[in-house]
Simulated assay, not measured.
Amino acid sequence: MVVSHFLKWINTAKANERAAAASALARAYVQHDLPFEDRCAAEAALTLLLDDPSAKVRKAMAEALALSRNAPLQVISALAGDQPEVAGVVLARSPLLTDADLIERVLSGGNATQMLIADRPAVSMELSAAIAEIGGADACRMLVANSGADIAALSFRRMAERHGHVGPLREALIADRRMPADCRHMLLVKLGEALKGSPLVVAVMGVSRAERLLKDACMKASLTLIDGTRSEDYSALIAHLRVRGDLTASFIIRLVAHGKVDFFGSVLVALAGSSDQRVRSLLAAGSDVALSAVFRGAGLSDAVHGILIRALKVWREVANGKRVAGAQEVSWLMLREIGGHEADGDLAALLKSIHLDALRENAREHALAIAAA
């Protein structure tokens, strides 16, 4: 029998020779229909080779067996627990390793092992969840970059919570279209916190000014985020903003000034407890008195009702094709509602800020259009 001669020969052969022979035996096992007796002998020989002192031999065997569903399970299992250069081949490829096997490796393995598993051709939702919960930032980034990975919204959230401060992963998460809107906002906040704590930013601006400017930047980024958020995801984003304490009156005023009326409607539904249908109907054609009642139910003070109603009337006309207007015009009309640029107080300061931001943005876009012409 060929296998019996092989087993006698390996005791005296050099490592390179043993590696070549092990590869040939493994390929014969998975590629050819061996007689039953020879197949059993080959499997026994492959199992014995797991004890070979040379990693070259075990790696050669792993490379030959890794892609096959016909490989001996006990051999694959042992190779998956071998040293990294051997185990990596099997962990990255073998179809015989179950989710339970791979999750166990994620839990017990280091960063290199986790990255190999995260980059497998197909990663189930359960395995993705384990990597998101336990894996390092590099493994999570590998998982997000893997088009064959099935990742649940909760797993995206856990990666954002655990590693949102790590720049490369944060960029990968933000670029992924599967990323839930509330998680995107969480990453925006983490980015702001990272910038706020930067020694350079603090040295240039000072702590107080850096905090103020970055808070304002996060609020503006949140408004931009809404444009890319599906309506069915509004409730999750609103709940996230509410828990963080970001769903403030000033944020709501910015929402309406910038024409985010659909999102504003979802906010009213969440805060006032009114039905979605009733709120949508009031925003489209409701009277001032009815709108004020809903605003009051949402906890908005009477001082802001007038400016919100003024803005909504303009957006209604825009929606109906009776008017052309944007944030610049709407914010100006909201400011006029409380006395124009001569008005004082926090509300006037907020509206002036919104109006000036809109002016700058429009001027910037105009300049870019001229340059591109």
Rank of each mutant, 00 (worst) to 15 (best):
K14V: 10
A118D: 06
L107T: 14
Y234M: 13
R158A: 08
A327T: 09
L268C: 05
D138W: 07
R360Q: 12
H165L: 04
A15L: 05
V256Y: 03
A130Q: 10
L50T: 06
S108P: 00
R316A: 09
F156E: 04
Q328F: 08
G88W: 01
L214P: 02
E171I: 10
S54K: 03
S266W: 08
S108R: 10
W332L: 13
R184W: 09
G339S: 10
A284V: 03
D176I: 05
G265D: 07
A45Q: 01
D288Q: 08
A319R: 14
W9G: 04
T12E: 15
M115G: 07
G265H: 05
A311L: 00
A327D: 09
C218T: 12
G273E: 11
I117T: 09
L223M: 15
E317C: 09
A13E: 13
A349H: 12
V289L: 12
L34K: 02
A149E: 08
E365W: 11
L291V: 03
H341W: 15
A122T: 14
V267H: 04
I134F: 12
G286Y: 07
E126T: 13
L107E: 15
G206Q: 09
Q328S: 05
A203F: 00
S198P: 01
S331C: 09
S77G: 05
A363I: 00
V57I: 06
G299A: 06
Y234D: 15
E337F: 01
K322I: 08
K322V: 10
G306K: 00
K220L: 11
S54G: 03
E17H: 11
A367Q: 13
D138Y: 09
A42W: 00
A112W: 02
A175D: 13
V89M: 06
L268Q: 04
Q83V: 14
A298N: 05
C183I: 06
S77V: 11
R212T: 10
Y234V: 13
E329T: 12
K322Q: 15
R336V: 04
D138K: 12
D357R: 11
A249D: 14
L79S: 01
M334A: 04
G192R: 04
I134S: 08
A64N: 05
N320L: 14
L335G: 07
V166T: 00
D138H: 10
L241K: 11
R244C: 15
A22G: 02
N11S: 11
A129N: 07
F6E: 09
L347D: 05
A284D: 10
E193R: 07
F295T: 02
S94T: 08
